[in-house]
Design a protein around this nucleic acid. Structure first.
Lengths: 407, 407
DNA sequence: GAGACTTTTTCCAAGCCTCGGAAAAAATGG
DNA sequence: CCATTTTTTCCGAGGCTTGGAAAAAGTCTC
């Protein structure tokens, strides 16, 4: 009924434990004293909380060689204990599934990629496939066989806002596929299904150079997608999986898009759009344009091929106008760019910036920083892992009450 | 450094006092028992907090005739005490300033409107004007002469994100005008300067039918602006005053907009755009098109004038595409519409919905509810008042500590 | 190498909240 | 007029943070 709920001492404990964990994730290794300074907690509280987390097994004391020859009692170094949990980031893309397992400290333990034709497959097959993938990954880890604590599935395409499955994906013909519940039953861990692009900002969650920064991640490749970090939170839509940047209309009545509409950004800027524009064929290619084919096309443009050049230019223009529209709505934001578009940034950047200049008020944002991340897969794995770890931190901070009782 | 800060008992107190105030604003009159049920606080805590707020003068016990003939001790009715504070909502528009004073319970006490040619005036004049307006308004209130506790200035145009003043306004020729500091010095109350359109969702802050609802407010008139309520918070940009819906590009290379760009939504959907389109004159009119003129134009369209009809249709189309783009980014949202566009909704609605259908994925959101609010001024005053009261609630919840000590 | 100094950690009483239950208060019903 | 019911107040308990004192674990100086 009322929108504001009460708070009590429990909330305070959870919040402060979370603050300590958060600080540790940012800096990696600290001492109780430094935690106190960073969080604003008293040293007593910092010490008590660290102690509880240590007893709970979430933290571990580490030996540091970095004897910085200062007087006084040296602080005992603390770090997140990798053995406290194990998370998996899985990925469903057109023609392949892949995954990475990491420990609670965020260190990647093992990773694999498997090419599969998913197009005609149903939900049961997908769940089986993901379960197999996860089990093979865990099997590789020699140590004691232990279950996963949290699984994130990043999907190309639209996902349910309750993180339960896939509404629609270019990788699959079937629609409305439940993933979370059946996969969770198979793996014994909570499963969250999210769109890969909107998840991407999570990859930067604890990176010091992105702390407190609002920014957008932009994927340009097979499709075009965006993730937003606003007010320190990764933006998630209520109804869908959020920022469908590729389907923001660029040109009313313009080029035909896969979604059926005319003039979407994707219909100009995605691989297939650039391809059909360069080849002069108006149809949407039936199959995915390979990365090598796009590389050749880019090289042709670099060599001066006029059709290829103008195709990339039109793509950059559409992206630029799209960004200009986003900047007009939200604010100018730094852009982290990935996908085949990032590889061809030399062909795109000028027209992107020109597009922003023409579409944003006062051209604001046309000089926004453009940060390139070549390895899209790594970015998605990082993002899924960070998301999973953040969720675990919340759970652990909450259940630390019981842990203290037990101890 | 770290982004998560600590919490302590103080925070708990502030948060819970705020929860009680929030509930009272939503329902108007309650009892301690009902507060307990609504907030989740224990009856003891609810009682203690209510008692503290009563002693602090923020609440008052009210007599209710509504004897609902039930057994048991009847609950003592509590309500926000109007005399606890006084806030002003001021408004700067093209050719006029206006204002309303309300009490702490949100009841309007007095209101006035003054036509002034502001175009060539500087900051000093504006501040003087607003100070005079506020003082004349307070002077009207017969009772003991008391100062304002909080002032909100809603401005057509772009404002600084720190709420200190005006970056640019169509009402003024000068740019970068400081308002908050000098006006605050004159009135003895904190002053916040915000864009009128982005402020508008605040008007619905405590309205039960909008509780927990995400929605957009859309102003179509002299200009075109939008306000967003997302995740229960009114969206505010970091750099500017947020959602410049009117300047989201509609058509690359399209009609000339006041902002200098080509193809903005405003260049199709604002009063001047509809006017120039209907009259076949390509220039932006030098003066504001009056409301009566727009009414006549709308009547001509209703009578079948083809030029007028197609002008409104083009306007609706641009708005529809704009909304489609927003929906694609964020989510389909209910729209609260106001301004002269709301008056001409019969001429616009079909093409708005058609535009959404053509520009949003699967046409999602083309059937979104369209809620009309005829009285734009009242909406802005409501919004400014709600914003001011919410800010006061925060301050009072914080300082309630001292209040209890004092008592 | 021993004592002085310095800095980090731990320990403990105190202060604030909220919670739960008991007691008091204020009405209705028979 | 007394039993019943419902709301409000009162009081002790428990949890978390705080601030200061004590302990711990080094470096520095003589």
């Amino acid at each position: 009924m009322s929108s504001l709920a009460k708070t009590d001492a429990d909330m305070v404990r959870v919040h402060n434990r979370l603050a300590v964990l958060d600080h540790l994730r940012r800096v990696g290794v600290t001492t109780r004293k430094l935690v106190s300074e960073a969080t604003g907690l008293s040293v007593s509280a910092s010490s008590a909380i660290s102690g509880a987390l240590l007893r709970g097994g979430l933290l571990s004391e580490v030996e540091e060689d970095d004897r910085s020859t200062r007087r006084g009692r040296p602080g005992k170094s603390l770090a997140i204990c990798g053995r406290a949990a194990r998370v998996a980031a899985l990925k469903i893309a057109v023609g392949e599934v892949s995954g990475r397992i990491s420990d609670y400290a965020g260190r990647p333990l093992t990773e694999m990629r498997r090419g599969v034709d998913l197009s005609g497959r149903d939900g049961g097959f997908i769940v089986d496939l993901l379960a197999d993938l996860a089990k093979e990954l865990t099997g590789r880890l020699a140590e004691e066989p232990r279950a996963l604590d949290k699984v994130v599935v990043a999907v190309q395409g639209k996902t349910f806002s309750d993180l339960s499955g896939i509404v629609w994906s270019p990788a699959l013909k079937h629609r409305h596929i439940e993933i979370a519940a059946p996969l969770s039953a198979r793996l014994g861990a909570e499963v969250s299904v999210l769109n890969d692009c909107s998840l991407m900002p999570e990859a930067f969650r604890w990176r010091p150079d992105f702390t407190g920064l609002d920014f957008a991640t932009l994927f340009v490749g097979f499709g075009v997608g965006m993730g937003l970090r606003l007010n320190g939170a990764t933006f998630q839509g209520k109804h869908s999986s959020a920022v469908e940047f590729g389907h923001i209309n660029h040109m009313p009545g313009g080029a035909l898009c896969r979604c059926g509409n005319q003039g979407c950004v994707e219909a100009y800027a995605s691989d297939y759009a650039i391809w059909r524009s360069a080849t002069g064929n108006g149809d949407i290619p039936a199959h995915r344009i390979g990365d090598e084919a796009m590389q050749r096309l880019a090289d042709a443009a670099r060599a001066g091929d006029p059709a290829a050049r103008s195709a990339f230019e039109a793509a950059g223009n559409a992206i630029g106008y799209g960004l200009g529209r986003v900047f007009t709505m939200i604010d100018p934001l730094p852009i982290v760019m990935t996908g085949s578009g990032a590889q061809a940034i030399d062909l795109l950047e000028a027209s992107i910036r020109q597009g922003i200049r023409e579409s944003a008020v006062d051209g604001l944002g046309s000089d926004t920083p453009l940060i390139l991340e070549e390895d899209t897969d790594a970015l998605v794995f990082d993002a899924g892992t960070a998301y999973a770890l953040a969720a675990l931190d919340q759970e652990f901070a909450r259940s630390a009450a019981e842990a203290t009782e037990a101890a």
